[in-house]
Simulated assay, not measured.
Amino acid sequence: MFGDFPIENKIVLVTGGGSGIGLQLTRLASANGAKVIVADLQLTPEAQQLVENTDTVVFQRCDVRIWADLEALIQLSRDKWNDVPDVYVASAGIFEPKWASFWQDTETTRYATVDINVNHPIKLTRLAIRALLETNKKGVVCLVSSIAAFGSSLASPVYAASKHALWGFVKSMAPLDALEGVKVTSICPGLVPTPLWNTLPEFRTQYSVDQMDHVSAEEVAECMLSLIQEGKYPGGAVMEITTPGPNGRRIIPPWNVSPTQMYASRARSEELVRNLIGPVREVLKKERKAKAKL
């Protein structure tokens, strides 16, 4: 068995650690005695203060779409602490904004949502496996997913698909803890009030954010720490967390998943459905008119 894995004196790498869930996990890991590499495009003032005031927390600018940037994070760990990270957390992600939207369809070469939400965590996992095996270490990977992994969304279909992909990937990694001592897990939060919602005010209305139950980034980070440290969560463990407290959490089985309450309640509300798919219908209406003029 993989067993417990306390993070004290270990090295924790967090992509997307400059804000939101990733920042809270960084805070928690540092408070528990870990050395932390924060990888992000930039730091929020809160994260900047943490880096400046904590000797064992370092920042490395990273575009997770660039695999060389991900590899550089492991090299930074070698250079600074003469070792590779023990824990790898893929927290960076996007929620299909307009510049990377299936419906707006402005991208010309590839979907950024797939690069950031799928390719990045999968590649980080591969790099983690190689680094840990080369140094003969045990280690843990924790990928931040979403309850969208078990549902659907006409408004953000590529985002939903990206989270389904992570669920399948993590389940596929389940045997790795017994085979090679590398535990791969995932956290699937519901609505979390991160800075994302403040920077995209139109999303607040479309996704009825103020009418939905939510869970704090701090509590999500605490669940992630449990997945990382506690041996009762094996490789392949996927934890859903949708509301505060233990009743808002469940471990998702590999098969026959029942709908989460958040999806069930939204489906019953005509107002929430109208809000959600309204922008999609506007796009389709414009495209239908454009086609009719041809």
Rank of each mutant, 00 (worst) to 15 (best):
Val64Gly: 01
Glu282Gly: 05
Ser91Ile: 02
Thr185Asn: 07
Ser156Pro: 00
Leu196Trp: 14
Pro195Tyr: 00
Met1Ile: 05
Glu287Trp: 03
Ser156Cys: 07
Val57Gly: 01
Phe95Ile: 02
Gly3His: 07
Phe59Tyr: 15
His164Leu: 07
Asn119Gln: 13
Val238His: 04
Gln75Ser: 14
Arg65Asp: 03
Lys98Pro: 01
Pro175Cys: 14
Arg65Glu: 07
Arg266Phe: 00
Ile74Glu: 06
Ser153Thr: 04
Ala112Met: 08
Ser152Tyr: 10
Leu133Asn: 13
Ile241Pro: 03
Leu294Phe: 09
Val238Asn: 11
Ala131Ser: 13
Glu230Arg: 12
Ala92Asp: 02
Thr125Gln: 11
Glu218Phe: 07
Arg61Asn: 12
Ser77Lys: 00
Val257Asn: 08
Glu222Ala: 08
Leu176Gln: 14
Ile37Thr: 05
Gln75Met: 14
Val51Ile: 14
Gln104His: 15
Ala290Met: 11
Ser101Ala: 08
Ala128Thr: 11
Trp99Gly: 13
Asn9Thr: 04
Thr125Pro: 03
Tyr111Met: 12
Ser30Val: 13
Ile147Pro: 02
His120Ala: 13
Lys98Gly: 03
Arg130Met: 02
Arg110Val: 15
Thr54Ala: 04
Lys98Ala: 11
Asn275Tyr: 00
Gly18Ala: 00
Thr54Ser: 03
Gly190Ile: 02
Thr106Cys: 13
Gly248Asn: 08
Asn119Gly: 06
Leu196Gly: 08
Gly22Met: 06
Gly151Cys: 06
Cys142Met: 05
Leu70Arg: 02
Ser208Ala: 07
Trp255Ser: 15
Val141Thr: 14
Thr56Lys: 15
Lys123Thr: 01
Pro246Thr: 13
Ser269Gln: 09
Ala292Leu: 06
Ile37Leu: 12
Ala148Ser: 08
Ile11Lys: 13
Ile228Ser: 10
Gly22Val: 06
Asp4Lys: 03
Val182Cys: 13
Pro234Gly: 15
Ala68Asp: 04
Asp63Met: 04
Val64Thr: 03
Asp105Gln: 10
Met1Ser: 15
Val58Phe: 12
Asp55Asn: 10
Ala174Arg: 10
Tyr263Thr: 04
Arg266Leu: 02
Ser162Thr: 06
Pro45Arg: 02
Asp86Val: 01
Leu227Asp: 06
Ser162Ile: 00
Ser258Ile: 13
Glu46Tyr: 01
Val14Met: 07
Val238Gln: 11
Lys293Ile: 09
